[in-house]
Computed example of a mutant assay.
Amino acid sequence: MTSRIILITGANSGVGLAATKVIVGASEKYHVIMAGRSREKLQSAMSEVQQGNTRGTVSTLLLDVTDEKSIDEAAKQVQEQHGRVDVLVNNAALGNVEPNVKSRFTSSLITNVVGPAMVAEAFRPLLLTSESPYSIFVSSGMGSLTMAAEPGAITYMPNENAYRACKAALNMIAIKEWQDFKSKGLKVFAFCPGFVVSNLRGTSEEARTGGGQAGDPAVSGQSLLDIIEGKRDAEDGKFVHKDGVYPW
């Protein structure tokens, strides 16, 4: 059976790691490429995946979404090893909430907006060789302009404006990719994984678990698998979450 090649950035923790576990546990037809910028963390994460319920296969790929050379080298490696990508999950992100506005916005935009845009462009030729290509941008409901403008909109964390702005910008990247490449068969989704355990907010137990309020990222992984398996195709080109569609 020919494997379906799924590349996930930021796959060594949080939603990326949880999604990898769900996907390779679902079927022998899936091969997940776990991409990240630390070889040591990737190897540890891959070992954790392989110790679980594994039907599919998994490999690692060094890829720093803030480094154009790293992205280009990663795309070349995948081209040589696999010849295509069937699903690209742009998941890598950071949740910078430091007080300095310039530093907060600069680092956030480079990682959360410029990075995914570069990754999407570098891997798109490999996606378009797939018979059924999917491009998924892991966004957040915090990036919804409509919901942010509602009276009584919730503030989730201090200095959250950079993160919100980045996810709104990422949504625009998703919309434009869908408009530009839907005629070539590329299905594109902006996807909100919800408030789940993640290193996005920091690596302390308090930050990772959101004070014990964050949910299981495996639920987000299952939602990603639903997209990959075509169960959300009717919502192609939209901003989806576990239970439906968010307004832009």
Rank of each mutant, 00 (worst) to 15 (best):
I136V: 15
K187D: 02
V245T: 15
S27Q: 03
L17N: 06
T9L: 07
G52N: 10
C192N: 14
Q50A: 13
G230W: 01
V32N: 07
P217L: 06
V119A: 09
S103A: 13
V138N: 06
I8D: 08
L88Q: 08
S220Y: 02
E177W: 09
N199A: 10
T54W: 01
E28I: 00
Y134M: 06
M172V: 06
G221P: 03
E206L: 09
K21V: 02
T2H: 13
D216N: 15
N199R: 07
M34V: 06
G115V: 01
M142I: 01
T2W: 00
T2S: 15
V97N: 14
S3D: 15
A74L: 11
G185R: 10
V97T: 15
I110K: 12
N96Y: 02
N112Q: 06
K167F: 02
A169E: 07
Y134P: 04
L128M: 13
V196N: 04
E28F: 00
S38K: 13
E73W: 00
K167G: 05
L186W: 07
V97F: 12
I6K: 06
V24L: 03
E121R: 12
S140D: 07
F123N: 07
A190E: 02
Y30I: 00
D226P: 04
L145H: 09
T54F: 01
E28T: 11
T60H: 05
R37W: 11
S70W: 03
K176M: 09
D180S: 13
A218S: 14
E131N: 14
V32M: 06
M147F: 02
F195Q: 09
K231A: 09
P247Y: 03
T9N: 11
I110T: 14
S140C: 07
L63G: 09
A45K: 02
S38R: 15
S107M: 01
Q79I: 00
S135R: 10
E48S: 15
T60W: 00
E80H: 12
